[in-house]
Nucleic acid binder design. Sequence first.
DNA 1: GAGACGAAGGTAGCCTTGAG
DNA 2: CTCAAGGCTACCTTCGTCTC
Length: 354
Amino acid sequence: MPVNRNALIRYRTIDQCLQNRHKKWTLDDLIDACGEALYEYQGIDTGVSRRTIQADIEMMRSNKLGYEAPIIVLDKKYYTYSDKNYSIANSPINQQDMQVLSEVSGLLKQFKGFNHFTDLNEMVSKLEDKIYTQKTQSAPVIDFEKNDNLKGLEWIEVIRKAIVARKAISITYQSFKAREASTFGFSGYLLKEYRNRWFLLGVAHVRNQPLLNLALDRIQSIATHEDAYRENTSIDFSVYYNDCIGVTKSPGQRDCEVVFWVDAANAPYVITKPLHHTQKLLSEDETGKIFSIRVIMNFELERELLGFGSKMRVLGPRILVKQMKAQLLKTLQNYDTEGPTLAADKLPLNKIDS
DNA sequence: GAGACGAAGGTAGCCTTGAG
DNA sequence: CTCAAGGCTACCTTCGTCTC
């Protein structure tokens, strides 16, 4: 909504007049006050018409500028605010913005409960907390895990725009394994967050290239690309990650039943925060509980399970048990045998050591 | 950089409506 | 009858774009 400078001067003047409750303000008083203000700030000495001030009051009363000023007329001629604390200058962000945020928050709420929209729950809570903070000017009451220093966050917006506009992009990328960065055309389909790290799924413009998963922190630059966007015709991303923990997944990989035991003290953590939405409780006794999940075997699954250390034992499938054993043996060896060390004077001094 | 031009938006004036 | 509110429209101003 375009508002010119003169109009803003008039709104502020009317606001200041109506805040001064020692004087009774008629329409003519407001016209005079606005005329004076325009002369003072803009050198305009032609005054301002009755109709213009009426329109200004109407505009201030409306929500078009987010003011919704409670202007009332007493005794058929005296203008005042019904709320003596009201001022158009009080809004930390304008009320229209607030309303838009509230509406968006309400809209996102509708998606709560759908599995593939679970990420939105978090966003809605963040949004609501932000809005609450703006409304009350108090400190946030929800603190979310975040890592502002994470590399690659700057690419999120440019990638999101490219996906929405269905435009191919040119990405310069260097994986942790690669010695040198390479540049290629890319059609992005999905931005995905896992454990505070962002990934981009799509296809590189190389012949017969399968679906590729790029970590945003390894992207060095993004530019526009002349190639036509390659549409995603085969993958339904709303269910693509349903059989998987994390983001690592190769095409054609089949899920399997992973069975694991968790000790009695830690089982409640697994019950209240399931490793996967397919998690089932198979059996329990006083020592612990046995669960199963149906997922594909990948790096993230292994890492998740290893994270429980001695509190968990994988029971199946056999190949995973073997892998876990091998990893844990290697972990033990890392502590037992001669390995990398840090000179004593470089070690941080912790109270707990002394 | 200056001037011409058109589009968009702002303002004024006239008018009607409706409440008290 | 008075006055606030608001619809309609002509005119004015401002701003961006184009051309020289």
